[in-house]
Amino acid sequence: MAWKFLNIGKANERIDALEAELAEAKKTPPAPAQSDAQAKRLDDLAASVATIGEQVSILTATVQKLDGSFKVEIARVETSVKEVQKTITAEAIGSRIALEITARQGQPPLNPGAPNGNAGNAELLKQYDSIQDPREKTIWYRKNKVAYDAAFAASNRK
């Protein structure tokens, strides 16, 4: 430890000086400086609020704009769905006619392995139902008896 004051007199002078500085400091409160900081802080906050408010307004406008776009988009999708449904219906009719033509030509069923899947089963049963001529119906059934009966049994196990 190093000795700073070897002279008591100098030490007392220094202590007096510090006490005087302390007294002076006590006379001058730091309040004005703190108030300025708080005021500045309040100003900053107010500015932030204003900024946020502007951003909210911008976002609100954006949402309104997007909402309008969504409505247009939804209407477009609905129209597309209707078009697709029309196509599916037309294809179903075409498929049924194709089934009947296939059956009339005496061709084997579209899915001879019908028991493997319900879709094939349904196709086979529909193919039989689609034949209008009773004689052709008889010929078709006898030719495909095993597959048809298996498909019928499988379709009833669901």
Partner: peptide, 15 residues
Amino acid sequence: YTNLNLARLANASLE
């Protein structure tokens, strides 16, 4: 009566 395979039964009658 989905268990009734009418095609099969009618064919038996026809035979």
